[in-house]
């Protein structure tokens, strides 16, 4: 009785976990494309890195059962859990220190018909911050180079 029921339960749990994981992975990828600004894209990438990855790996662990493979998968889950926030913070910290300004305040996506216009506003809005830092940083870079 239990022996018959177990594979079905395993299959159901594994498929539910993996479907949810795939949903979060795709949602995170869509977010990385849709969001207007680097700092907000960071959050969408976090969705993929945390819940999407962990759910898919949990689904695989349930599939593999108790074996060496599932132990290796546990290692992968643990590494992703530790390294993904560190990498995220490293990227954000580097962007912040280089002077990339976040867009703050309320943001609303343009109307559905104008979906193509959104990337334009995005690329228009970020360069001023960049060019500011460029003009700030450019001169010291040049002087050090000429000194050498």
């Amino acid at each position: 009785m239990i022996a018959e029921f177990l594979p079905v339960a395993q299959m159901l749990i594994a498929s539910v976990l993996m479907l949810a994981g795939v949903f979060f992975v795709i949602a995170g990828a869509i977010g990385v494309i849709r969001l207007p600004d680097f700092y907000t894209r960071m959050h969408a990438a976090g969705v993929t890195d945390t819940l999407g990855a962990e759910l898919i790996i949990f689904g695989l662990i349930v599939q593999a059962g108790i074996s060496q493979t599932s132990l290796k998968l546990v290692f992968i889950a643990f590494f992703l859990f530790l390294t993904s926030p560190t990498a995220t913070h490293a990227v954000v910290g580097a962007a912040w220190q280089s002077g990339l300004k976040p867009k703050l305040g309320k943001y609303k996506a343009p109307a559905p018909g104008e979906a193509k216009a959104k990337p334009k506003t995005k690329s228009k809005a970020t360069p001023p911050a960049k060019s500011k830092t460029k003009s700030k940083r450019k001169s010291p870079v040049k002087t050090t180079r000429t000194k050498k």
Binding site: A45, G52, I57, S84
Partner: peptide
């Protein structure tokens, strides 16, 4: 548009490659 967007995409792409490899192995 910026370098950091590319690095972010690269990092996230790598995570997906890890998942893909694990699924592919099974």
């Amino acid at each position: 548009p910026t370098l950091y967007d590319r690095i972010l995409a690269m990092n996230s792409f790598g995570t997906k490659v890890v998942l893909f490899l694990a699924v592919f192995a099974l």
